[in-house]
Design a protein around this nucleic acid. Structure first.
Lengths: 200, 200
DNA sequence: AAGGTAAGCGGAGGATTCTCCGTTTACTGC
DNA sequence: GCAGTAAACGGAGAATCCTCCGCTTACCTT
């Protein structure tokens, strides 16, 4: 039953040979281009392999599965956002008080979910844990945990940040927007209320 | 590209012919049995069809896709839980004060997520919105919204209940439990803290 | 109770994802 | 340089999901 076999995360980080690195670049570029051109829905692994000029086996060795590949594309697109909250200007970046940074961070995250919705959705659907394992989730969660622990040192900041990021799961977000017709403003307002309660 | 085509929810509710209803029953029973016997991972639609004694096309006409079928099985298993919070004894059922009911409800939901994790995971992965569209999510969300609006009439209860249910998404829950090693108790405690803040 | 019709049925086949493993290639130590 | 080895490559093929459409059947109307 080859439908899905979650690839075991290999603990050791072998330094990756030169040809392998080159192929990773080619594959990533090809995937990004194909998505740009025809949408995520239409992205097939065979096609990516052909466009990148490698065998399909190579695509799978580098990226494990579809979801991981798509997340890699998302990540590449988000590099600048990540730089912004790590080292950019306040209130997103350092300098502002924690409460303000948390708020700015979550609002920004709502915006990027809105923008990348299609991609995120596709990636989430293909693999149960690519979102957490491969995507930038770990980074976001860590960032939020740190900020929260400053504001509420008594609480389980790690759990709390999971809980605050959870409503941004692509499938829920899409359901709220498309099926229930909630506006982006309403979602942000909902977050504000939540934050007002949680961060005091 | 036939990988996925979300079935359009047909607004009209044609009353379903007798043979169709019978086949639905047979398919559901076969699916439940196969899952029981060999796990969700190994469940193939062709196999379900064969075990139920119908064509594979019939399975798809009745249930649209894998996710919907799996959710139907989950729902069948959860009938009693649903009865418990709708009409059972307090604090889950009516009679207790809203705050206590909310707490009992979420704790119970954590337990059922723990129990049905494999099934929920599989169903979530196959379809982006089967969880919301087909599963009992709507019921849970409605219930929670009602309780919340009693406690916090000023807030956006609908959004808030989405946000409180979001951490129970199977993929996040599994990640917390398996990869990060959080205990069930810790998760419940996290909820308690959240509730203490949100419901005052 | 007979005829008409909308709904249901079945299973072959297209499309896709991912695995497997024999062959090729980049790096290391001498 | 050169040989040895671990890593990477490629693509055929297995497994699966879901669609399509010609045939069949339950239900309603008269």
């Amino acid at each position: 039953m080859p439908r899905k076999t979650l690839p075991v995360a290999d603990g050791g980080q072998a330094p990756e040979r030169a040809d392998a690195a080159e192929n990773r670049r080619k594959i990533l570029a090809a995937a990004a281009e194909l998505i740009e051109a025809r949408g995520v829905e239409a992205l097939s692994m065979d096609e990516v392999a052909r466009a990148a000029g490698v065998g399909v086996g190579t695509v799978y060795r580098r990226f494990g599965d579809r979801a991981t590949l798509v997340y890699a594309v998302v990540d590449a697109r988000e590099r600048d956002f990540q730089a912004a909250f790590l080292g950019g200007p306040a209130p997103l970046g350092p300098g502002a008080e924690p409460r303000a940074r948390i708020r700015a961070f979550l609002h920004a995250l709502v915006d990027r979910t809105e923008e990348q919705l299609e991609l995120l959705l596709m990636a989430e659907m293909d693999s149960a844990d690519a979102r957490f394992k491969e995507g930038s989730y770990a980074l976001y969660q860590q960032h939020l945990t740190l900020l929260l622990s400053e504001v509420r040192p008594d609480a389980d900041a790690a759990y709390l940040s999971d809980a605050l990021l959870a409503p941004l799961a692509a499938n829920l977000y899409r359901y709220q927007r498309r099926t229930r017709g909630m506006s982006v403003a309403r979602i942000k307002k909902g977050y504000d209320d939540l934050l007002a309660q949680v961060t005091g």
